[in-house]
């Protein structure tokens, strides 16, 4: 049976994060914590492979103790096992030690055929972590996947690139990062959620992973944040155009050379 790992991150619901009007920083405290949306799309592809050929799906997440709720939610959707990587030593990690820590977790699990992740998160959205994990593990990677299938030892994926789609077929082991909204995640099931709560989420710390404190967390982070600036959104000129005026508008845009109509 295939062994699949899905990496998920608990993030504040982006639609609820408010900008502090004075400090101009993000106020995340009021927002609900949710599973990063693209990670649910990644999980859904893992579950489809499980439905098709059978697989053991382990969900892993690095985060604070309360992130176990995010893992339980993934198990309620069909994942078999959940591991929370949590330790004071991991705090303040940038994407480099985050990738390293996740890679160490996957290495410790052993015999992993496919690693799934979101392409990026809604709270930091660097997109570094997936590729970083693949490099640390020394396995192939497929990024920006919008369709994912599995057949006889190969992952077949459609990558959404700027100039078109690219279909790739890569032998396992492979890491796949999945695009947001590339599928509709299945619902949670009460049966599975009860079982997940009973089973519980395993908790691994720095000792379980055999990592050194200077490799992880803030100490292991090469990024130095010098300052942060809030960028003011430019004012938009909103204009409502009724349908019967559309011809005028088009004519106007054509006359200003903003758009072209018909032919080349």
């Amino acid at each position: 049976m295939l062994n699949i790992v899905v990496m998920i991150k608990q993030v504040p619901d982006s639609s609820e994060v408010e900008i502090d009007p004075v400090k101009m920083t993000l106020n995340r405290t009021k927002a609900r914590n949710v599973v990063n949306a693209a990670d649910l799309n990644a999980l859904e592809y893992a579950l489809r492979i499980k439905d098709k050929v059978g697989a053991n799906i382990t969900v892993i997440s690095m985060g604070p103790p309360m992130a176990d709720a995010a893992i339980i939610e993934c198990m309620a959707r069909g994942a078999d096992r959940g591991i929370l990587i949590t330790d004071r030593a991991f705090a303040g990690a940038d994407t480099y030690p985050t990738g390293l820590t996740l890679a160490a977790t996957i290495a410790k699990l052993g015999n992993v055929d496919i690693v799934f992740g979101g392409d990026e998160t809604t709270d930091s959205s660097t997109g570094h972590v997936g590729p970083g994990v693949a490099e640390f593990l020394g396995i192939d990677q497929i990024t920006y996947a919008k369709e994912v299938d599995y057949e006889d030892g190969y992952v077949i994926a459609t990558r959404d690139l700027e100039d078109g789609d690219e279909i790739v077929k890569v032998h396992t082991p492979v890491l796949v990062t999945v695009l947001l909204n590339s599928n509709v995640p299945r619902h949670q099931s009460l049966r599975k959620k009860i079982d997940a709560i009973r089973k519980g989420v395993e908790s691994w710390g720095i000792n379980e992973l055999g990592l050194k404190p200077e490799w992880v967390g803030l100490r292991g982070s090469p990024t130095i944040v010098r300052s942060m600036k809030a960028i003011k959104e430019p004012e938009h000129l909103h204009k409502t155009i009724t349908l019967d005026k559309i011809d005028e508008v088009v004519a106007d845009l054509v006359s200003k050379n903003i758009i072209k109509v018909g032919g080349k």
Binding site: D13, E16, K30, R32, H187, Q188
Partner: peptide, 10 residues
């Protein structure tokens, strides 16, 4: 709605 979908009041 199924699951936790739908409106989310603060």
């Amino acid at each position: 709605p199924k699951g936790d979908n739908g409106v989310i009041y603060k």
